[in-house]
Amino acid sequence: MVVEGSNENDQIILATGGYDHTIKIWQTHTGICQRTMQHAESQVNALEITPDKSCLAATGYQHIRMYDLASNNPNPTVNYEGITKNVTGVGFQEDGKWMYTGSEDCSARIWDYRLKSPHAAKIFQTSAPVTCVCLHPNQVELLVGDQSGVIHLWDLKTDHNEQFIPEGDTMILDIDVDSEGTHMAAVNSKGRCYIWSLTFGREGEPTKMHPKHKFDAHKRQALKCRFSPDSTLLVTTSADQTARIWKTCDFTLLQELTQDNQRWVWDAVFSSDSQYIFTASSDGCAKLWNVKSGHMEREYAGHQKAVIALAFRDAVL
């Protein structure tokens, strides 16, 4: 029921957005654009699909906009405002109870996005613009990275927070925690990747973070890091025109995904069985790669400008 006339593709949603002020929904196995939505006034910084797959959230300058995936409405249905600068990240609690965002106005926020529980709204102030937000799979701890190189661990239940500084004055660009909640990865503007192993805090206590590994993933800025759903792989994307897949057992390189003239690789996401990976790049294309072979399988062309955000929902058979 995602898009009309695509019943066979019901459960798979791939959305891309970027600098051309549009969001496109793709039929993943054919590479055909099914739908284009307007994101007026600003570029798309980040995209996320709600857990019930009914809506797509897109963040831009000062706004978070919600698009209906069930209809063909090219305009947003809900507009969240009140942030003074770019909204850099968005995500949802796994049951869709609330939405979290990070923004360059030095804050991370919890939104009661369905207007059901007015007391859900929360704000967490940082000293530098927030570049990324990531929810721990335990659903109560939010990891917030900022431009000064600090990673904040914010406990939503107690509002207790802790700070980690892997490398001073080096912008943290992305953080991810694997689905089992045992490892955390962060990448910075020097292309370095940091790995922590996480141990569960006892009831009420925050998660403990133990630095485990660090390596130079890229020569230039690393832009995104993402664990595979089975936690065996980690993908990092970079301004050096590549996306690299690392094995999490020893952090050795498994594949380098690169193509001539693809320019900056902004975003990447694994399929639910960790066999494929989508990337978004400045050449205006999203691409699908086979993880095992490292070959590009599909190309999703149609954007006028750089594609910088991806949202993907797969289904398990």
Partner: peptide, 19 residues
């Protein structure tokens, strides 16, 4: 609102994705 959940263990059983 903020319920601490146990992260799912052993997700690695390889089931095929629709994609």
């Amino acid at each position: 609102l903020f319920v601490r959940k146990e992260p799912k263990k052993n997700v690695s059983n390889t089931r095929k994705s629709l994609l």
